[in-house]
Write a protein that binds this DNA or RNA. Structure first.
Lengths: 196, 196, 196, 196
DNA sequence: AATGAATGAGCCTTCATTCAT
DNA sequence: TATGAATGAAGGCTCATTCAT
């Protein structure tokens, strides 16, 4: 039955994902999830015993899938650094503007209310991974002459913080696609040699 | 009596401010506020009839006081653009790192759950005001030869998004003073003519 | 100031009358009355200390005014018994169908919840008075040859119970003017000699 | 489980019936019912979510049972119209004088506060059904020579309004068995040929 | 007399959690 | 495993009543 169990667990996580995306973290009740899953109250408790447990499980599933497949794939090809950075930014843009199934708000609510040690904070991991990827791409770009900067790490961090700022702004003050494009472009332009 | 009433209203707002700072928006109950104020349930309802009403009142009081007095004062003196930008950033840094009485998290929770038209969204107003100030300072700095950039508006926006990113990161993944310094410095350096 | 006091008392009773007419007895709160009168909470308590006290006061004022003036006046003239009974029924009909300011429902609620000794029950007094009036009119009518029945008292009671039935029906199942006319006419016809 | 559920639903309705009989409609709180049933607050809400819902359910159960079984049974026998009318009146009398478990007052309170379209107003239905029964009985009685009247419908209505009047009077001004007997007798006598 | 702020009791409603089946 | 009835705690809201001014 472990097979069937795993199946059901996955099913619950999917439905719960939708609930967290819609209501954030704090407003979600076990009842919400039960109803979304259309299972019994007791049934849910068999798998998860609190919204926190549920949320953390949803989150790790989510991150697992997340693995920036597009980027990874591209890295295996012979794409230029510029192409790959563009690809990365395209993914980020999609995430920033995503309305459906976004866990961003739920993450803010959860991680701002719970002091998670950085080492095990998935948000932190994602952020650091992003910086790492961007830094690498920039360095590659410098080597190939596509990019120009004397602080690739600083630039990568700057980019990631801007992305964070855009994400939160998208949820709180509302921004449109043009705004995102403009901001990302601003940064990219800082990277490109300006002599031309 | 209106005098005393106003007094008490203010008192409630102060206490509520503390509660929102501590628990964010969604977790705050009227009971929390009642207990923080040490008044009766009915007494609170005399002044505010929901946590939303309370929060919005707290917020407008907060913004009112906020008025970036330091900056304003400096503007009336003969401070250089560089000094003034440094001052602005110091204020922002304080805000980013503030643990006590920060409404940042509560704002995220409230404004991500409620679609407020941009025109009346105080978060938006604050952001735009920030961009405006920074842009002006940069332009002044360009005129005085302190700064160098061909897109003051873009640079101002970039700075403000980084600040947003730092704010949210401070609450969710935790960042220390050095990180803030490093990020702000990175941007400042981009502004300073590098020929020397 | 006793003059002014009496004035205000009267004012409160008028407003309260409207409130009881609209909401019945049980649903009325002191707050309702305070708001209807636009006076202070404490102010109302200076005059009445419960809705019950208020209601009973409203009721006695109401009954006082009620005194079937029209009938009384007619009795002093040389109206025929038939005319006077018709007049009486017209008044009753008005009462049965009245939507505004009717205390009927409030009376039902109050007197069905409180066992008032018949001797001091104003509803009972009114009922008995009605029977008495009708009986007298019928007897007069018999003497003048207008009416015919061998049980004037029984007929009067029957009429009054029908009126009670119509009153309560008007409030609970809804009846229209035609229905009232038809019912009252039915009784009248039983009184009139049928030989003609 | 549905079996047990139905059982409990019935149990709650019985207890609630008692509560409404005792306190009318408006004064009944969910807490009253919870206590009468000796179940938990939440438990009650599982079955009914307001006193209104409860009351309407109580009412329809009540009417269902009500079916004037005695009359129906008699109709299938060879009882005379007079016997059957007497039987009907005996039932009504019982109802008029009933102290325990009577929903009359609750009905007054509920239906005078809520405008229910006549077509779906159970009080109206009951009234009309009563008129219909009485009219039929009278007509049968006329055919068999037991009764005499030239307006069976009018007489039936008159009877039913008197009964309504007696019901409400029983609750508000208090009447005893003799009074009921006397009033019903008065009407009956009007039906019986008087020549003998 | 009159005001209206303040209190606290009371009822409403929703859910997390348990448990018998 | 799975169900869903049941419980009771928690928080919301409204008002009767009091009292300092």
């Amino acid at each position: 039955m472990s097979e069937k169990s795993a199946q059901k667990r996955k099913y619950i996580l999917e439905k719960a994902h939708g609930v967290f995306a819609e209501k954030g973290f704090k407003d979600v009740t076990m009842k919400d999830v039960v109803e979304a899953c259309d299972i019994s109250r007791g049934g849910l408790y068999l798998y998860f015993s609190s919204t926190e447990e549920l949320f953390l499980a949803v989150l790790s599933e989510d991150i697992e899938e997340d693995d920036d497949e597009a980027i990874t794939k591209a890295l295996n090809n012979d794409a230029t650094a510029g192409d790959m950075l563009a690809l990365f930014l395209k993914e980020q843009k999609k995430e920033i503007l995503r309305k459906k199934n976004s866990l961003v708000v739920a993450c803010y609510e959860y991680f701002s209310a719970n002091d998670i040690p950085p080492a095990s904070n998935p948000l932190r991991k994602q952020f650091d991974a992003g910086v790492q990827i961007v830094q690498t791409l920039i360095e590659n770009g410098i080597n190939s002459g596509e990019f120009q900067t004397n602080d690739p790490y600083g630039c990568a961090r700057n980019l990631m913080y801007v992305i964070e700022g855009l994400k939160v702004s998208a949820k709180t003050i509302g921004i449109n696609e043009d705004t995102v494009d403009r901001e990302l472009l601003y940064i990219l332009e800082g990277l490109v040699p300006e002599d031309n």
